[in-house]
Measured scan of single mutants.
Amino acid sequence: VTLFVALYDYEARTEDDLSFHKGSKFQILNSSEGDWWEARSLTTGETGYIPSNYVAPV
């Protein structure tokens, strides 16, 4: 499992996005959609889309 960590805070703009804070960790579920990845937050357990340029591999 590849884990990613948030580099910045992000406020969701749609109900499909995940809001998160810098330092939040994610499991990436689908990275084939270009700049928006489907991810599960390891902090909240919620699933949604995150901007790929806001995260980096742990």
Rank of each mutant, 00 (worst) to 15 (best):
S24E: 15
S52N: 06
A12D: 02
L29M: 08
H21F: 12
N53D: 11
T14C: 15
S32K: 10
I28F: 03
I50A: 00
S41E: 10
I28A: 02
E46A: 10
N53G: 11
Q27F: 14
E46N: 08
S31T: 13
E11N: 09
G45E: 05
V55C: 01
G34N: 12
T14G: 15
S31I: 12
T47D: 04
Y49E: 02
A39P: 00
L18G: 00
L7W: 03
T47Q: 10
F20G: 00
L29S: 05
A39T: 01
E33T: 12
L3D: 07
Y49Q: 08
T44K: 03
V55D: 01
R13Y: 08
L3K: 05
T44Q: 03
E11I: 13
Y54A: 13
P57Q: 08
F20Y: 01
D9I: 03
Y49H: 07
L29V: 08
W36T: 06
D35W: 09
V58D: 09
S24V: 10
V58I: 13
T44N: 07
S41L: 13
S52K: 14
P51K: 06
G23S: 03
S19M: 03
W36Q: 06
R40L: 13
K25H: 13
V5C: 09
E15Y: 09
A39G: 05
L29Q: 05
R40N: 04
E38L: 15
K22T: 07
P57T: 05
Y8H: 08
G45W: 06
K25L: 15
W36S: 06
W36Y: 12
E15R: 10
T44C: 04
D16M: 14
S52A: 13
N53E: 10
S41F: 06
S32F: 10
T47V: 14
L42A: 06
L7P: 00
G48Y: 03
E38H: 14
T47M: 09
V55G: 01
P51I: 03
Y54I: 06
D16P: 03
S19C: 06
I28K: 04
L18I: 11
P57C: 06
I28V: 10
T14S: 13
I50H: 01
D17C: 15
E46P: 01
S31W: 13
W37H: 03
N30F: 07
V58Y: 12
I28E: 01
N30V: 08
W36C: 08
Y10V: 01
V55I: 10
T44D: 05
T47F: 07
W37E: 00
V58Q: 08
A39R: 00
I50V: 09
T47W: 08
Y10M: 02
L42Q: 06
A39L: 02
G48F: 04
Y54Q: 05
T2I: 13
V1G: 14
K22I: 08
A56D: 05
N30W: 07
G45A: 04
P51T: 02
I28T: 01
T2F: 11
E33D: 15
A12S: 11
D35L: 12
V1M: 13
S31F: 15
Q27H: 11
G23P: 00
G45M: 06
N30M: 07
G34P: 15
E33L: 14
S19H: 08
T43C: 13
S52E: 04
Y10L: 02
E15Q: 12
N53L: 09
L42Y: 07
L42G: 02
T43F: 08
D35Y: 15
G45F: 07
L18V: 05
V1L: 13
D9L: 02
T43G: 08
S24N: 14
W37Q: 03
L7E: 04
Q27K: 08
W36E: 03
L3Q: 08
K25F: 15
L7K: 05
W37R: 02
Y8R: 08
D9Q: 04
V5N: 02
S24T: 15
D16H: 15
I28S: 01
G23A: 03
F4Q: 04
A56H: 09
D9E: 06
A39D: 00
V58W: 13
E38W: 15
E11A: 10
E11S: 09
N30E: 08
V5D: 03
D17W: 10
